[in-house]
Nucleic acid binder design. Sequence first.
DNA 1: ATCTATACTATGGGATTATATGGGATGCAA
DNA 2: TTGCATCCCATATAATCCCATAGTATAGAT
Lengths: 163, 163
Amino acid sequence: MFLSRFTNALDAKGRVSVPADFRTAIALGGLENNDEFDGIVVWPSLEGKWLEGGGMALVRSKLDLLKNLEPHDHARIAFERAYFGESFRLGFDASGRVSLPKELAEFAGLDKQVTFVGMGERFEIWDADAYLAKAKQVRKLAKDTRQALYAKIKVGAGQGLDI
Amino acid sequence: MFLSRFTNALDAKGRVSVPADFRTAIALGGLENNDEFDGIVVWPSLEGKWLEGGGMALVRSKLDLLKNLEPHDHARIAFERAYFGESFRLGFDASGRVSLPKELAEFAGLDKQVTFVGMGERFEIWDADAYLAKAKQVRKLAKDTRQALYAKIKVGAGQGLDI
DNA sequence: ATCTATACTATGGGATTATATGGGATGCAA
DNA sequence: TTGCATCCCATATAATCCCATAGTATAGAT
């Protein structure tokens, strides 16, 4: 599981260290299926100017869910293009770095300091300054909407989720 | 699995490099069955003016699904003609290129720059400019229909049939 | 508690390899 | 021959590997 927040440097070659914590999370998640691939998958968020990422296990689970829909379903095809088509497979080098494609770096406005935010089963990648600004709003928003969130969970068959 | 988007050049001889990422995806997918054939299968999309493609494993799975239908089923026969009949087997050359039949290139309006779009278990081939225009709509469409998509997935307990 | 040895992490830069792509040569069929 | 497809070789660029280092945390011994 991806927890915590880590800020690392993006170097001149476009490389950035993936937090060691996240690397072990990925290694553990990929144990069930013997994923040939050692690295992360990253895509531009549909919500705003930051990146999202996870291990191959997460991508595979999305693929499996989509198989339940009609192949020509417009929503399905749009999602496949927007998600699979825009996802990048980023392999680790010997010291646990990935090199971010220019395209992704530009999308999220990444240049110097990059923040990895653990989100449970996935993570987000932000420009460090941008996340600092966002974090303030997030704290207040989470506090204000917590009650509504809990209500939703109780309605849908939640079994002892503790938020 | 086919991920990402790659844009390569179509040369004067009608050749285009298949992204290395896709080539390894095909090599991995074909490991179970020892596919004699080293290349991709490409066919015109039924949805619009672009091509779709995948490895032999994908074609084989479609064939297997169709075997569940009556041999004289009209829908089956129509599908077999439109899909198997229009599919081209394109072999790799030593540096991982295929040569696109004129017929396919004309169908999809391919001339200079060609974009391969990963769609999970298959991929699409677009004229680069055409896809650029499409991608903008796609992002919005995916965002707008995402909630409906999740709802559909929750309702349908389908078992991943994909034709 | 303090010091020391060890392991790991993040990061920089050079060396090496892979990839995409152009052009020529070869083989085959109409 | 003429066209067409395949194979072979050459190369610039981009991606990847490899080694070095500095800082940080961990463990053990005194």
